[in-house]
Write a protein that binds this DNA or RNA. Structure first.
Lengths: 107, 107
DNA sequence: TCAATAAATCAATATATCTTGATATTGAAG
DNA sequence: CTTCAATATCAAGATATATTGATTTATTGA
Protein backbone atom coordinates (compact mmCIF):
# COMPACT_ATOMS: atom_id res chain seq x y z
CA UNK A 1 0.00 0.00 0.00
CA UNK A 2 2.77 2.43 0.93
CA UNK A 3 4.52 2.04 -2.39
CA UNK A 4 1.32 2.48 -4.31
CA UNK A 5 0.47 5.66 -2.45
CA UNK A 6 3.99 6.95 -3.02
CA UNK A 7 3.54 6.34 -6.74
CA UNK A 8 0.16 8.02 -6.75
CA UNK A 9 1.15 11.05 -4.74
CA UNK A 10 4.11 11.55 -7.07
CA UNK A 11 1.52 12.08 -9.81
CA UNK A 12 -0.69 14.22 -7.64
CA UNK A 13 0.75 17.60 -8.54
CA UNK A 14 0.49 19.69 -11.67
CA UNK A 15 4.15 20.71 -11.57
CA UNK A 16 5.29 17.11 -11.44
CA UNK A 17 2.99 16.04 -14.25
CA UNK A 18 4.49 18.79 -16.39
CA UNK A 19 8.00 17.72 -15.49
CA UNK A 20 7.20 14.15 -16.49
CA UNK A 21 5.77 15.33 -19.79
CA UNK A 22 8.82 17.50 -20.37
CA UNK A 23 11.27 14.70 -19.68
CA UNK A 24 9.18 12.35 -21.77
CA UNK A 25 9.51 14.77 -24.66
CA UNK A 26 13.17 15.67 -24.31
CA UNK A 27 14.89 12.67 -22.78
CA UNK A 28 17.58 13.21 -20.15
CA UNK A 29 17.92 16.74 -18.87
CA UNK A 30 20.03 18.26 -16.18
CA UNK A 31 18.47 20.13 -13.32
CA UNK A 32 19.66 23.53 -14.48
CA UNK A 33 18.03 22.96 -17.90
CA UNK A 34 14.66 22.33 -16.29
CA UNK A 35 15.24 25.24 -13.98
CA UNK A 36 15.83 27.64 -16.86
CA UNK A 37 13.05 26.16 -19.01
CA UNK A 38 10.40 26.30 -16.32
CA UNK A 39 11.72 29.39 -14.55
CA UNK A 40 11.42 27.55 -11.29
CA UNK A 41 13.56 28.16 -8.25
CA UNK A 42 16.06 25.45 -7.59
CA UNK A 43 14.91 24.07 -4.25
CA UNK A 44 11.38 23.66 -5.50
CA UNK A 45 12.49 21.83 -8.63
CA UNK A 46 14.89 19.63 -6.71
CA UNK A 47 12.14 18.60 -4.31
CA UNK A 48 9.73 17.68 -7.10
CA UNK A 49 12.38 15.67 -8.91
CA UNK A 50 13.12 13.76 -5.74
CA UNK A 51 9.44 12.91 -5.30
CA UNK A 52 9.23 11.68 -8.89
CA UNK A 53 12.37 9.61 -8.40
CA UNK A 54 11.12 8.12 -5.13
CA UNK A 55 7.81 7.44 -6.87
CA UNK A 56 9.67 5.23 -9.35
CA UNK A 57 9.31 7.44 -12.41
CA UNK A 58 12.78 8.90 -12.79
CA UNK A 59 16.39 7.89 -12.69
CA UNK A 60 19.34 10.17 -12.04
CA UNK A 61 22.74 10.01 -13.62
CA UNK A 62 25.34 12.12 -11.98
CA UNK A 63 28.18 13.58 -13.97
CA UNK A 64 30.40 15.64 -11.73
CA UNK A 65 28.25 18.26 -10.08
CA UNK A 66 25.55 17.85 -12.69
CA UNK A 67 22.54 15.61 -12.30
CA UNK A 68 20.76 14.30 -15.37
CA UNK A 69 17.21 13.15 -14.80
CA UNK A 70 15.34 10.94 -17.23
CA UNK A 71 12.32 8.68 -17.26
CA UNK A 72 13.13 5.24 -15.90
CA UNK A 73 13.11 2.50 -18.42
CA UNK A 74 11.46 0.14 -18.43
CA UNK A 75 8.53 1.47 -16.46
CA UNK A 76 6.17 -1.08 -15.01
CA UNK A 77 2.69 -1.50 -16.41
CA UNK A 78 0.91 0.98 -14.18
CA UNK A 79 3.49 3.74 -14.42
CA UNK A 80 3.77 3.48 -18.17
CA UNK A 81 -0.01 3.59 -18.43
CA UNK A 82 0.07 6.74 -16.32
CA UNK A 83 2.69 8.22 -18.62
CA UNK A 84 0.59 7.31 -21.66
CA UNK A 85 -2.32 9.10 -20.02
CA UNK A 86 -0.17 12.17 -19.47
CA UNK A 87 0.91 12.13 -23.10
CA UNK A 88 -2.73 12.25 -24.14
CA UNK A 89 -3.36 15.37 -22.11
CA UNK A 90 -1.58 17.55 -24.64
CA UNK A 91 -0.06 19.70 -21.94
CA UNK A 92 1.46 22.98 -22.98
CA UNK A 93 5.11 22.94 -22.07
CA UNK A 94 7.72 25.69 -22.02
CA UNK A 95 10.43 25.73 -24.70
CA UNK A 96 13.58 23.89 -23.75
CA UNK A 97 16.40 26.20 -22.74
CA UNK A 98 19.50 24.06 -22.51
CA UNK A 99 21.99 26.00 -20.46
CA UNK A 100 24.03 22.87 -19.87
CA UNK A 101 25.13 22.84 -23.50
CA UNK A 102 25.73 26.51 -24.07
CA UNK A 103 27.96 26.57 -21.00
CA UNK A 104 25.93 29.45 -19.61
CA UNK A 105 24.83 27.62 -16.51
CA UNK A 106 25.56 29.80 -13.51
CA UNK A 107 22.26 29.53 -11.74
CA UNK B 1 -5.02 18.08 -16.90
CA UNK B 2 -7.80 18.88 -14.42
CA UNK B 3 -9.55 15.58 -15.04
CA UNK B 4 -6.34 13.64 -14.74
CA UNK B 5 -5.51 15.27 -11.43
CA UNK B 6 -9.03 14.62 -10.18
CA UNK B 7 -8.58 10.94 -11.05
CA UNK B 8 -5.20 10.81 -9.37
CA UNK B 9 -6.19 12.62 -6.22
CA UNK B 10 -9.14 10.27 -5.87
CA UNK B 11 -6.56 7.50 -5.54
CA UNK B 12 -4.34 9.50 -3.25
CA UNK B 13 -5.78 8.38 0.06
CA UNK B 14 -5.52 5.11 1.93
CA UNK B 15 -9.19 5.14 2.96
CA UNK B 16 -10.33 5.53 -0.64
CA UNK B 17 -8.02 2.79 -1.90
CA UNK B 18 -9.52 0.46 0.71
CA UNK B 19 -13.04 1.44 -0.30
CA UNK B 20 -12.22 0.69 -3.93
CA UNK B 21 -10.79 -2.70 -3.00
CA UNK B 22 -13.85 -3.43 -0.85
CA UNK B 23 -16.30 -2.54 -3.60
CA UNK B 24 -14.22 -4.47 -6.10
CA UNK B 25 -14.55 -7.50 -3.87
CA UNK B 26 -18.20 -7.22 -2.95
CA UNK B 27 -19.92 -5.50 -5.83
CA UNK B 28 -22.61 -2.91 -5.12
CA UNK B 29 -22.95 -1.87 -1.49
CA UNK B 30 -25.07 0.70 0.20
CA UNK B 31 -23.50 3.44 2.27
CA UNK B 32 -24.70 2.02 5.57
CA UNK B 33 -23.06 -1.33 4.77
CA UNK B 34 -19.70 0.31 4.24
CA UNK B 35 -20.28 2.41 7.31
CA UNK B 36 -20.87 -0.63 9.50
CA UNK B 37 -18.10 -2.67 7.88
CA UNK B 38 -15.44 0.02 8.20
CA UNK B 39 -16.78 1.54 11.41
CA UNK B 40 -16.48 4.93 9.81
CA UNK B 41 -18.65 7.90 10.62
CA UNK B 42 -21.14 8.75 7.95
CA UNK B 43 -20.00 12.18 6.82
CA UNK B 44 -16.46 10.96 6.34
CA UNK B 45 -17.55 7.97 4.28
CA UNK B 46 -19.94 10.04 2.20
CA UNK B 47 -17.21 12.53 1.36
CA UNK B 48 -14.78 9.82 0.24
CA UNK B 49 -17.42 8.15 -1.89
CA UNK B 50 -18.16 11.44 -3.58
CA UNK B 51 -14.48 11.95 -4.40
CA UNK B 52 -14.26 8.43 -5.87
CA UNK B 53 -17.40 9.06 -7.89
CA UNK B 54 -16.15 12.43 -9.17
CA UNK B 55 -12.85 10.75 -9.96
CA UNK B 56 -14.69 8.42 -12.34
CA UNK B 57 -14.34 5.21 -10.34
CA UNK B 58 -17.81 4.74 -8.90
CA UNK B 59 -21.43 4.90 -9.90
CA UNK B 60 -24.37 5.38 -7.57
CA UNK B 61 -27.78 3.82 -7.85
CA UNK B 62 -30.39 5.29 -5.61
CA UNK B 63 -33.21 3.19 -4.30
CA UNK B 64 -35.41 5.23 -2.06
CA UNK B 65 -33.28 6.69 0.68
CA UNK B 66 -30.56 4.16 0.06
CA UNK B 67 -27.57 4.74 -2.16
CA UNK B 68 -25.80 1.79 -3.69
CA UNK B 69 -22.24 2.44 -4.81
CA UNK B 70 -20.37 0.17 -7.17
CA UNK B 71 -17.35 0.30 -9.41
CA UNK B 72 -18.17 1.88 -12.75
CA UNK B 73 -18.13 -0.44 -15.67
CA UNK B 74 -16.47 -0.29 -18.02
CA UNK B 75 -13.56 1.58 -16.56
CA UNK B 76 -11.18 3.20 -19.02
CA UNK B 77 -7.70 1.83 -19.52
CA UNK B 78 -5.93 3.88 -16.90
CA UNK B 79 -8.51 3.48 -14.17
CA UNK B 80 -8.79 -0.26 -14.67
CA UNK B 81 -5.01 -0.53 -14.58
CA UNK B 82 -5.10 1.36 -11.30
CA UNK B 83 -7.70 -1.03 -9.98
CA UNK B 84 -5.61 -4.00 -11.09
CA UNK B 85 -2.69 -2.49 -9.20
CA UNK B 86 -4.85 -2.15 -6.11
CA UNK B 87 -5.93 -5.79 -6.38
CA UNK B 88 -2.29 -6.82 -6.35
CA UNK B 89 -1.66 -5.00 -3.08
CA UNK B 90 -3.44 -7.69 -1.10
CA UNK B 91 -4.97 -5.15 1.24
CA UNK B 92 -6.50 -6.41 4.44
CA UNK B 93 -10.14 -5.50 4.47
CA UNK B 94 -12.75 -5.65 7.21
CA UNK B 95 -15.47 -8.32 7.06
CA UNK B 96 -18.62 -7.24 5.29
CA UNK B 97 -21.44 -6.39 7.67
CA UNK B 98 -24.52 -6.03 5.56
CA UNK B 99 -27.02 -4.13 7.63
CA UNK B 100 -29.03 -3.32 4.54
CA UNK B 101 -30.12 -6.95 4.24
CA UNK B 102 -30.77 -7.76 7.87
CA UNK B 103 -32.99 -4.72 8.09
CA UNK B 104 -31.01 -3.54 11.09
CA UNK B 105 -29.86 -0.35 9.52
CA UNK B 106 -30.60 2.46 11.92
CA UNK B 107 -27.34 4.31 11.69
C1' DT C 1 -48.90 16.42 7.17
C1' DC C 2 -45.55 14.65 10.38
C1' DA C 3 -41.93 11.80 12.12
C1' DA C 4 -38.13 8.93 11.19
C1' DT C 5 -34.21 7.19 8.49
C1' DA C 6 -30.41 7.36 4.89
C1' DA C 7 -27.36 10.20 2.85
C1' DA C 8 -25.24 14.72 1.66
C1' DT C 9 -23.37 19.09 2.92
C1' DC C 10 -21.37 22.58 5.97
C1' DA C 11 -18.16 24.82 9.32
C1' DA C 12 -14.36 24.32 12.32
C1' DT C 13 -10.24 22.15 13.42
C1' DA C 14 -6.39 19.00 12.52
C1' DT C 15 -3.07 17.27 9.42
C1' DA C 16 -0.38 17.02 5.27
C1' DT C 17 1.79 19.07 1.28
C1' DC C 18 3.87 22.96 -1.35
C1' DT C 19 6.71 27.10 -1.69
C1' DT C 20 10.36 29.99 -0.43
C1' DG C 21 14.77 31.56 1.24
C1' DA C 22 18.73 30.02 3.77
C1' DT C 23 22.11 26.64 4.50
C1' DA C 24 24.64 22.23 3.62
C1' DT C 25 26.84 18.94 0.54
C1' DT C 26 29.47 17.44 -3.26
C1' DG C 27 32.73 17.58 -6.99
C1' DA C 28 35.89 20.27 -10.10
C1' DA C 29 39.36 23.62 -10.84
C1' DG C 30 42.89 26.60 -9.38
C1' DC D 1 43.51 23.25 0.69
C1' DT D 2 40.46 26.84 -0.90
C1' DT D 3 36.90 28.51 -3.81
C1' DC D 4 33.05 28.14 -6.70
C1' DA D 5 29.18 26.10 -9.13
C1' DA D 6 25.39 22.55 -9.13
C1' DT D 7 22.36 20.21 -6.42
C1' DA D 8 20.22 18.72 -2.10
C1' DT D 9 18.24 19.54 2.34
C1' DC D 10 16.15 22.27 6.05
C1' DA D 11 12.93 25.41 8.55
C1' DA D 12 9.12 28.56 8.27
C1' DG D 13 4.98 30.11 6.52
C1' DA D 14 1.18 29.40 3.00
C1' DT D 15 -2.13 26.43 0.96
C1' DA D 16 -4.78 22.26 0.40
C1' DT D 17 -6.98 18.14 2.13
C1' DA D 18 -9.02 15.18 5.84
C1' DT D 19 -11.79 14.55 10.01
C1' DT D 20 -15.44 15.55 13.08
C1' DG D 21 -19.96 16.95 14.75
C1' DA D 22 -23.92 19.57 13.45
C1' DT D 23 -27.23 20.60 10.07
C1' DT D 24 -29.77 19.84 5.78
C1' DT D 25 -32.09 17.31 2.17
C1' DA D 26 -34.80 13.62 0.38
C1' DT D 27 -37.74 9.73 0.83
C1' DT D 28 -40.65 6.59 3.07
C1' DG D 29 -44.54 5.29 5.87
C1' DA D 30 -47.80 6.35 9.64
Amino acid sequence: MENFLETISALNDETRVKLLAFLDQHGALCVCDMQSSFGMIQSRLSRHLKILKDGGFLRVDRCGTWAYYSIRSPLDRFRSEALAEIRCLGIELPPLIKLSETGDCKL
